[in-house]
Amino acid sequence: MRWLAPHAAVPLSPIEFEQVALCHSRSLLRVARRLTSNTDSAEDLVQDCLLLAWKNFHQFRSGTNARAWLFRILFNSFYAAGRRARRASDAVALTPATLTHSYDFDEAMDVARALDTLNLDHRTVLLLGVVEGFTCAEMSEILSVPVGTVMSRLGRARHAMRARLIAPSHLTAKESR
């Protein structure tokens, strides 16, 4: 694991943790919300992730990709806690007030709904690759799957998502999870 130091390093301070890890909480929460579709559950997931990161911070190799390291912890926590099936009835509330004024509300709703109907693997690669800007190699490490798998998932995910956005009636046809 390239993010981990080969030997126990000098313990890092809380300030360093804030600068290296806590600054990514927005990205983590943004992805967690779309994984769980529930704000409370997403916050719990991000909190678990950051506490684990803090606990193992002495192993983190300074200068490497902290963001990818955190996302790997996030997904490990997500799967370890059996959150795959966690989707509560109070899905992330999208209202005009919750969106920035510069973006069209209906458009954001359509896209977010279409994204939520994708299966978890497809949603994950679109969030990581397209929204968060991770490379295929980074996604491969975060998700512990080969790069070829990431590429094929990304291709299929884009195809499925585009089909949903072109034909909104498909929005109701949920894929098997």
């Binding site: 809380p14 909480s25 929460l29 916050e43 920035t100 973006y103 359509d110």
Partner: peptide, 22 residues
């Protein structure tokens, strides 16, 4: 671009989580 803009347009409030971690 469309997907990125739609998801990034949603505000994310991390103040509660950040405070608990701090």
């Amino acid at each position: 671009k469309r997907l990125r803009s739609a998801i990034l347009s949603q505000p994310v409030d991390t103040s509660a989580v950040d405070q608990r971690i701090r």
